[in-house]
């Protein structure tokens, strides 16, 4: 049962990611990304990491994607026109490089390590609220705080840039 659900979520997650890349409308892409995130949450839940699963839904599928969607919709999101697809045939091999690299790396990894599915046993406290809290506020405290400073700087920067360019309709 768990093995089946693992493959089910995994394949759906992969399909969601694929659909996100091939869509033309940015809004539709974002919705597929949400779908992919939800499947990731399913895999966390299967690994008996409830805290991570709920976090994935709350933070990624909820808050972050809503902000993405919000921005895309407000800007009347970019819809890829035909002209934007490189007509220069010489560029096509270049586009193929990143996915090809990923495929080669994956194949190499599977050959070396074997295909992995659900692990048979997981540490009892893996992905629980206590475990994550101890990692975040203990071992990785410095990194955690530094990241929040980086985010704060990014927010202030965005505000500063936005402030300068803001044109109110009545001014």
């Amino acid at each position: 049962m768990e093995g089946f659900l693992f493959w089910f979520c995994g394949i759906l997650m992969f399909l969601g990611g694929l659909m996100m890349v091939v869509q033309r409308s940015a809004v539709v892409s974002a919705v597929w990304l949400v779908f992919s995130f939800l499947c990731t949450a399913g895999i966390f839940a299967l690994l008996s990491a409830p805290f991570l699963a709920v976090m994935q839904v709350l933070v990624y599928a909820g808050a972050i994607m809503v902000l993405f969607l919000y921005v895309i919709m407000m800007l009347h999101g970019p819809v890829l026109e035909d002209e934007l697809i490189p007509s220069n045939k010489a560029l096509w091999p270049l586009i193929a490089i990143p996915p090809a690299a990923v495929v080669i790396l994956l194949v190499g990894w599977v050959k070396g390590e074997g295909l992995r599915t659900m692990p048979d046993s997981i540490a009892a406290d893996f992905g629980t609220a206590e475990h994550v809290a101890q990692l975040l506020l203990g071992r990785y405290l410095l990194a955690f705080e530094l990241i929040s400073i980086v985010l704060l700087v990014a927010i202030i920067g965005a505000l500063a840039i936005g402030q300068r360019e803001r044109k109110l309709p009545w001014k």
Binding site: V27, V31, V34, P50, F51, V54, M55, V57, L58, A61, G62, A63, M65, V66, L69, Y70, M73, T128, A129
Partner: peptide
Amino acid sequence: DLDLGLFYIFAVSSLAIIGILMAGW
């Protein structure tokens, strides 16, 4: 009866926001 019940409630109710955005768009 979930260990993270309260947290779970907040998480799943945030899905509705995506639904609302979708409806409007």
